[in-house]
């Protein structure tokens, strides 16, 4: 696995060398640009958080005030009263977890098949599999919709979390396969000689050695289904089935019906939806970054 050493960058050696103060002064413009960009990236968040803590009266005044007069933490409770946000949250969690398990399990097993077994047509099938990376979801969505309609899966969370159990997508298979190829075959052979069957080898030999790629795929899978809007929009119909991504637009419609300023609630709901992503990022930052870099280099 490629170990991106993001924390230890190389700076082209400067001709001046050694003079610390001079270097610091030279860095000032750079630091200034870095700060301006950080403001551009961070400000919308800060603004959302500040807005989420205001009372309606404070929202539509010009010029806007930065800090709320008194932080209204109760807004974060209020959003759960205005719409079944907790239910949306639960639906999202259910879809995310079931998608994650299915995607990771099936993609890693399929990748194992491609990485470790010789069978007629393997290379062609692998190429076909890779080419589906380029397949836009829009081209299959209509027949899939009709299929789900026929199966009676429409307006069921099933329509979102069952398909990933069938292979888990080309990207996941590819990532797992590339990782498995870096594990020496001698490990398999040794286990085989000890009488292990292939499933045992997969779970006891390959899986423990592949923890990073499993975590990485877990993150990608989580992000993919947590943020998915297109799927729920097309397959789900009744409010009780909505995931958070779709539920947020419903929430927007409902709260705005009153005709009052509701931006503070919208911001609170948006932040609630972002929090799990933030949490995963903070906890698993290293794997996350490695995963992106890995897919970039090996893609």
């Amino acid at each position: 696995m490629v170990e991106p050493t993001l924390s230890a960058p190389r700076v082209p050696a400067s001709g001046i060398g050694g003079v610390r103060l001079q270097q610091a002064v030279r860095m000032m413009p750079t630091l200034l640009v870095v700060l301006v960009l950080a403001a551009a990236f961070g400000l919308p968040f800060l603004w959302a958080v500040l807005t989420s803590l205001k009372v309606p009266r404070e929202i539509f005044i010009f010029p806007p005030t930065w800090l709320p007069e008194a932080p209204q933490w109760s807004n974060y409770i209020e959003v759960f009263r205005q719409a079944p946000l907790a239910l949306f949250f639960w639906n999202s969690l259910k879809v995310t977890v079931l998608t994650g398990i299915g995607q990771i399990l099936s993609a890693s097993l399929v990748a194992y098949g491609f990485a470790r077994f010789r069978f007629p047509g393997r290379n062609i099938l692998f190429l076909v599999m890779l080419s589906t990376l380029m397949l836009p979801p829009q081209i299959t969505i209509i027949p899939t919709f009709l299929l789900f309609k026929w199966l009676g899966w429409l307006d069921e969370l099933r329509s979102l979390y069952i398909p990933p159990w069938f292979g888990g997508g080309a990207f996941a298979i590819f990532l797992f396969r590339q990782f498995f190829l870096t594990i020496p075959r001698e490990f398999d052979e040794a286990a085989k000689i000890d009488g292990a069957n292939s499933l045992w080898i997969f779970f006891r030999v390959l899986t423990p050695l592949s923890v990073p790629v499993f975590v990485t795929m877990g993150i990608f899978s989580f992000l993919g289904s947590w943020n998915d809007f297109f799927g729920p929009l097309i397959f789900l119909n009744t409010t009780e089935k909505f995931t958070l991504a779709l539920g947020l637009t419903y929430f927007q419609r409902v709260v705005s019906l009153g005709g009052q300023a509701t931006e503070h609630l919208m911001m609170a709901a948006s932040i609630i939806m972002t929090l799990p992503c933030l949490l995963v990022f903070i906890l698993l930052q290293r794997y996350w970054i490695q995963g992106i870099v890995m897919s970039g280099i090996k893609g």
Binding site: S106, R116, L125, I139
Partner: peptide, 28 residues
């Protein structure tokens, strides 16, 4: 035997490919 096992491991994808990719493309 190795070939049979290999096919078994990639079977989920083969089914998924037929049902969610190739089939829908032809239908569309």
């Amino acid at each position: 035997r190795e070939a049979i096992e290999g096919y078994l491991y990639i079977a989920p994808w083969l089914v998924g490919f037929a049902v969610f990719a190739a089939g829908p493309m032809l239908v569309s």
